[in-house]
Design a protein around this nucleic acid. Structure first.
Lengths: 135, 135
DNA sequence: GCTTGACCTTACCATGATGGGAAGGTGCAG
DNA sequence: CTGCACCTTCCCATCATGGTAAGGTCAAGC
């Protein structure tokens, strides 16, 4: 099948399929006489794997490792699990950071009247002023 | 003061200070005879504002709006609050998405023995196989 | 046959926020 | 006057993705 159908079947844009090929994440596709890329079910499977890994937030480098492990019948599940847990830790870190931001903002927003007047603890907080304290 | 000290005082890299100037987030800095940029306490204050907004995850566009509101004595705190709450909603969305990823990964990882054998529900999940179900 | 339209090809540029590095000017202390 | 820290501009890289341009391919319909 052509790249368009491969894209439709996997949810990976044609653009990205070509990109993945260019960075070696997938092998160079077979070509027809027309020079069009030609994909089979094996390629579709691999692209689906990549898309699901992307959807779970893995980076391209991590996906490269996962693909290697996928194709390695000698792999130990411990390796896969370690990679996954490392990624979970990254996610936790990001979630924690965003949660801290959210908390700070919510606190500032709660203290803001949100009316027609200019006085605003949010702006004051960003401006580095101790919000209406010891002064 | 020179850009280096401004950077040290605000925690914004010299590189980014120049960049902020180039995109109009801060006004063109005064120049000495040497063509070196020259900063005063007013600039430091503005850079500090930007850094704190960045630390809270605001985008450059949002920061542009916040700076405008900061300088607008006619602002209504409602505008600031609305911008902030919109940003909080963005954060919530990101947190939710990451949380979903984390949940899926944790579920897969929990099901993975993590031993020397190759069998691994994580890899199977990514490969699109219904994990050991009806077959 | 010829046209139309959907599809494909490569190549270049853009994003957003940041860093790296090169090549060269400035300024102060020894 | 040399050395060193600092500054200047300019270009390139990141990461994953999209856009667009200019052109080739192919099947359907007239």
């Amino acid at each position: 099948m052509q790249i368009g159908e491969a894209s439709r079947l996997t949810g990976v844009s044609a653009k990205m399929i070509r990109h993945y090929e260019s960075i070696g994440l997938i092998p160079n596709a077979d070509r027809r006489d027309s020079n069009y890329r030609d994909y089979g079910h094996h390629d579709i499977h691999r692209l689906g794997f990549i898309r699901r890994a992307r959807d779970l937030g893995f980076s391209m480098d991590e996906i490269r490792d996962l693909l290697r492990l996928w194709g390695d019948t000698q792999r130990s599940s411990a390796d896969v699990k370690a990679l996954t847990q490392s990624h979970i830790a990254e996610l936790d870190q990001k979630i924690r950071l965003l949660g801290e931001m959210r908390h700070t903002l919510a606190t500032l927003a709660d203290a803001c009247d949100g009316d027609h007047r200019p006085d605003c603890p949010i702006i004051e907080g960003l401006a580095g002023e101790t919000p209406h304290a010891g002064h």
